[in-house]
Amino acid sequence: MNEFIADSPFKFYTRLHLSELTGYKAYNLKELLKILKKISGSSIYYHTHRYLQQHQYLSPEPPNDFAYWVKEGLGEDKLAEKLASIDTIQFSSIRELRNKIIDTIKKYIIENPLSKKRQANSNQGFYFIKAISFVFYTGYEVFTLQEFCNVLSKITIDSIYYHIFESRLRLEKGKNDFSNWIENSLFEKQIAAEIDKIDPYTHTMEELRNTIIKIIKKRIEK
């Protein structure tokens, strides 16, 4: 059993968000591309992560708004699949993710020139929204793996979301907060690596919580 006490605690924060409308709308791929190039990173982040919190159970929604709209609004199923399968976990910044989305659409237009002519109905435009994040300290501080596990089991999914998604990609920390602390403060490299290896984009938030708890419990019970 690991009872190592860290010098510095892990502080649990939570992130709550509000959606701000940007006023930008697209009705075809050309307009979508044009706006994608100039819109704020907070909007790219919103449209590639919204589903994670809105659909906490398994649902038929594709994993990002761009893919959904390209399929439902323009009927471009092939491009929708390409956008939906972008492996977000590979990217360590919104800038890189934005470039990948833009490149995917550009390449598709070159290969399928007719796609440029597809137009969404007037009531089916793509409305760019951005995420305003409010980060709060939850009051939970832990020093051991056991304490970490206890808090993780009861914290909101918004807190897990913040430490796994927001801090890695939006705040460009490179790695999720849990792995960082477990590796650098508890010196548990293997557990840190196991958590970092999980692709959080293919889990519901509750599954993600349970998967991390399982990894930690296994180590505690050793």
Partner: peptide, 27 residues
């Protein structure tokens, strides 16, 4: 998951807070 009063209450309070802040990430 999305349309209960508790979510609404949360967003109204965040809206009130946003009136005093102008950034995309607020700590």
């Amino acid at each position: 998951n999305n349309f209960l009063i508790t979510r609404h209450l949360k967003e109204y309070m965040l809206l009130f807070l946003s009136l005093y802040h102008n950034k995309d990430i607020i700590y």
